[in-house]
Write a protein that binds this DNA or RNA. Structure first.
Lengths: 158, 158
DNA sequence: GCGAAGTATTTTAGGCTTGAAGTAATTCGT
DNA sequence: ACGAATTACTTCAAGCCTAAAATACTTCGC
């Protein structure tokens, strides 16, 4: 009863399993991101991309250029232009043309931005802990290690 | 040497680890999705959302309504309206108002859509296998199981 | 039968994202 | 010093996505 003779595709069972793994990874990531985005929006009228940008500014030593933000967030330059524009409109970040290179601009959190970020980050951290609360510390450590392997694997192909 | 007295935040070390886990999950998912999107675009002039919609039609028994597609893809109705519109323009799916309920419409792959989807799906499966190729079968099975736990955990809070 | 409630979908306004083309300032080679 | 190449950023067109309001049709209660 060898079914392979009736299924002469090049796709192996292992490939199909890997595809299911990817679909599960994608769905889980999207589910968590959607829930975090929903709460940020409801509690702080904030979006995830803008929160991520503020997080980069918060953890950096000093101001960052738009280009550096673009690299750290792994998005295009044009994308950063728009995000910063909206954050400036909200008074959460400050944008300054650099004195020694007038092509370039640096961005930093305003005082209001810093205060808001700290409140948001506290809640955000707690939300993540809540959402992953069903995994014990061993599970979380294993998952983290496997994701590191996955990222390294992807990195070799990209 | 109890550092906790100098770090009186409510955030525990475990919460910080969980946050790092989430950031890693998110980054890995985005990295894979971006690479698959890049290849779909380069090889087939196709986007990931449209590919996903076609995959739902391919694996369903018969035609699906827009509402059913919306549920299965976990996106809003309005989103599906636009995706289907563009796929109809490309001649890849067919859209028919239902006879017995004229509010509703069903969607199915055209012959051209079916043929294109099968070619794309073969490559897509191979790409996923390539990207996760650095993980052996044991790693992949463990990762899959942990992601199932994670999704269940999230499901309890959402 | 008919009005109210419910259902399926579309429309709208706004935000995110990309790739490609464009602008402005700096640096490099000679 | 000065034209060419490079760098930093912006603009544009197109697509994806959402929440909320609107439209069109069906069903339910009486």
């Amino acid at each position: 009863m060898d079914q392979r003779v009736e299924q002469p595709s090049v796709a192996s069972d292992a490939d199909a399993d890997t595809l299911r793994l990817w679909l599960r990874l994608f769905a889980t990531s999207n589910l968590v991101a959607a829930e975090l985005a929903r709460r940020l929006r409801a509690e702080f009228a904030m979006t995830l991309p803008r929160f991520d940008l503020m997080a980069q500014l918060h953890k950096s030593d000093g101001p960052l250029t738009l280009g550096e933000l673009s690299r750290r967030l792994m998005v295009t330059n044009g994308n950063v232009t728009g995000l910063v524009e909206r954050l400036v409109d909200d008074g959460l970040v400050d944008r300054k043309v650099r004195a020694n290179d007038r092509r370039s601009a640096t961005v930093s959190l305003t005082e209001a931005g810093e205060m808001l970020f700290e409140r948001m980050a506290d809640d955000h951290r707690a939300w993540v802990a809540e959402l992953f609360g069903g995994l014990d510390e061993t599970d979380r450590a294993e998952l983290s290690a496997l994701l590191r392997s996955a990222r390294n694997s992807v990195g070799e192909s990209v």
